[in-house]
Computed example of a mutant assay.
Amino acid sequence: MGRLSVNLAGVELANPVMPASGTAAYGQSMAQQLDLGALGAFVIKSTTAHAKEGNPRPTTAPTKAGWLNAIGLKNPGIDNVLAEKLRWLAQHYPNLPIVGSVAGATFDEYVAVAKRMASAPNVQLLEINISCPNVAHGGLAFGTDPQTVQRLTSAIVTAVNKPVFMKLTPNVTDIVPIAQATEAGGASGLTMINTLTGMGIDLKTRQPILANGTGGLSGKAIHPLAVRMIHAVRQQTKLPIIGVGGVFTPEDVLEFYLAGANAVQVGAATYGQPTACTDIITGLPAVMDQYGIGSLSQLITEVQG
């Protein structure tokens, strides 16, 4: 094992860095900016049973300390993803572990898409986006009720033969019971955190800056919140955690590790710096030297026991 290598639920990664779901679509554009093969893994855009057009524009806007986005799960649907997007990744990057992000509006859709996603040979992990509105229960996100989370996790885990990571929403009073519910449902790991619900208003038009009104806040502003939530969840579970939220530098990566993470995702940083993922990977060894860290696996053992 290399100095940066990590093991996520039995899947070996050469390094812990991957793009956050939705920030690099299905890889074709990012591949023009950097070598996808240098990434620890690649997380595809959240995919649903059928194509979705997403929300009306504008769907993204900068804020004082991050980005607001309300893309609305725009994606071409699982049929297209299997036939084209994942096939392209397999042809051009056959050794790159792919994390298949799954979304849905009902239990049945989640399970059906997860089964189809798991059938792709290059998809080694599933990431379940449970920040989606539950259309059967008034639009509240699936991920806000522990009982619902446990049932959904169990249904997906039973239906697939690959590790299932549940992506937790921070838009709850206490994230720990949600994490515990995923573990009780048989999840192999956690991704945390998703964006926080926010809003911006244009002083000239007096209207929200996003057509959707509210959107998910990402970027540097949410990093301390992610650190706090990862730390809290780590006290209660041994499941591997993929940390996400305001990762811009190697130092941010190591801070997540000290909170209890096993790998990281990079999102908003790529908007202004397309090579942020590989820049962080390249810079990690020197920063690890600075803080006397021999390897990430050793750091995990030190922090998590």
Results as ranks from 00 to 15, higher is better:
302 E>M: 10
232 A>I: 03
72 G>R: 10
293 I>L: 09
296 L>D: 02
233 V>R: 04
132 C>L: 07
101 S>N: 13
14 A>T: 11
75 N>H: 12
140 L>Y: 11
287 V>A: 10
23 T>M: 13
29 S>T: 15
190 L>M: 08
187 A>Y: 04
261 A>D: 00
278 T>S: 08
192 M>H: 05
261 A>C: 06
89 L>R: 06
18 M>I: 04
227 V>N: 01
283 G>L: 11
249 T>E: 05
218 S>C: 12
229 M>V: 03
73 L>H: 04
247 V>I: 15
251 E>Q: 15
103 A>Q: 01
132 C>W: 04
79 D>M: 09
154 S>E: 15
24 A>R: 00
80 N>D: 13
216 G>P: 13
248 F>D: 08
185 G>E: 07
216 G>Q: 06
283 G>K: 11
172 V>C: 04
266 V>A: 02
215 G>L: 03
218 S>E: 00
274 P>D: 05
239 L>H: 09
126 L>D: 01
276 A>K: 01
22 G>L: 03
281 I>E: 00
163 P>A: 12
164 V>Q: 03
77 G>N: 10
229 M>H: 05
153 T>N: 07
175 I>M: 04
41 A>R: 03
6 V>L: 07
170 P>L: 05
130 I>V: 14
178 I>E: 04
136 A>K: 13
261 A>N: 03
294 G>V: 09
272 G>W: 00
291 Y>H: 13
202 D>G: 13
69 N>M: 09
222 I>T: 06
171 N>Q: 09
209 I>M: 15
173 T>I: 15
282 T>A: 12
73 L>F: 13
37 G>A: 14
190 L>A: 02
52 K>C: 13
134 N>Y: 02
121 P>K: 13
135 V>S: 11
92 H>C: 12
194 N>H: 03
69 N>L: 08
183 E>K: 13
91 Q>G: 14
130 I>D: 05
244 V>Y: 02
104 G>F: 04
222 I>P: 03
82 L>N: 08
192 M>W: 02
280 I>W: 00
55 N>D: 12
267 G>A: 06
279 D>P: 00
108 D>N: 12
280 I>V: 07
257 Y>S: 03
240 P>T: 09
140 L>P: 01
40 G>F: 07
6 V>H: 05
244 V>Q: 01
266 V>W: 00
154 S>D: 14
130 I>H: 03
82 L>F: 10
217 L>W: 00
234 R>L: 04
203 L>M: 15
74 K>W: 12
144 T>Q: 07
88 W>I: 14
278 T>W: 04
228 R>E: 06
194 N>V: 01
71 I>F: 10
230 I>W: 01
31 A>E: 08
96 L>V: 11
270 T>R: 04
52 K>N: 15
90 A>R: 13
112 A>C: 09
178 I>V: 14
208 P>K: 15
7 N>V: 15
96 L>A: 11
72 G>I: 11
287 V>Q: 10
120 A>S: 14
267 G>S: 04
160 V>D: 07
53 E>A: 14
230 I>L: 07
197 T>E: 15
157 V>C: 11
22 G>R: 02
48 T>D: 01
89 L>K: 06
216 G>R: 08
260 G>N: 02
2 G>A: 10
158 T>C: 12
233 V>I: 11
